[in-house]
């Protein structure tokens, strides 16, 4: 099938977050950190979290190199996760994963994805799914105390 990437993938919000990524910084005093790497395309990022004693993500940030999809995904992920509990983060991880695999349809399936539904077209571009998911795997790896996460 042919899909127009301009309509399905490179939405206004994605372009904007790529240009001005939120929470794009190294975090001093992070409680959890992991490095994510996609050997297929060379995308590389660090995710930093500060999780407080009651299991809430006080702060989250990232830095690294990658395509517009991976950068915008990390920017939107950090925006979504700030202030969330670890349980909510895990629900979001699962829902985002289903979304980019094309299993969760945001218009009919209940979800708490909010702005993250901007990635609903990614599944039409199988080679780009990992671009969107790398930061999420890295975030989960950090919480699970894995220091490096690879998409392979």
């Amino acid at each position: 099938m042919n899909y127009d990437s301009r309509k399905e993938l490179y939405q206004e919000m994605i372009i904007e977050h790529n240009k001005k990524p939120r929470n794009f910084r190294k975090m001093e005093g992070a409680t959890h950190t992991a490095e994510g790497y996609n050997p297929l395309c060379g995308d590389h990022l660090m995710v930093y979290l500060h999780i407080n004693g009651s299991g809430t993500i006080d702060d989250i940030s990232f830095e690294g190199d990658g395509c517009a999809i991976s950068r915008a995904s990390a920017s939107l992920m950090t925006s979504s996760l700030k202030g969330k509990t670890l349980h909510e983060a895990s629900v979001l991880f699962e829902q985002f994963h289903s979304l980019i695999k094309g299993e969760l349809k945001p218009e009919k399936d209940s979800n708490i994805l909010g702005k993250l539904t901007v990635f609903s077209g990614v599944w039409h571009f199988p080679t780009r799914v990992k671009c969107a998911s790398l930061c999420w795997h890295t975030m989960r790896g950090a919480i699970e105390h894995k220091t490096t996460v690879s998409t392979e």
Partner: peptide, 18 residues
């Protein structure tokens, strides 16, 4: 990778990566 995906919209096949 963004270039590769976007030029594909115009029917142009190039390779991107390392």
């Amino acid at each position: 990778h963004d270039i590769g995906t976007l030029v594909n919209d115009e029917g142009v096949a190039i390779r991107t990566g390392h």
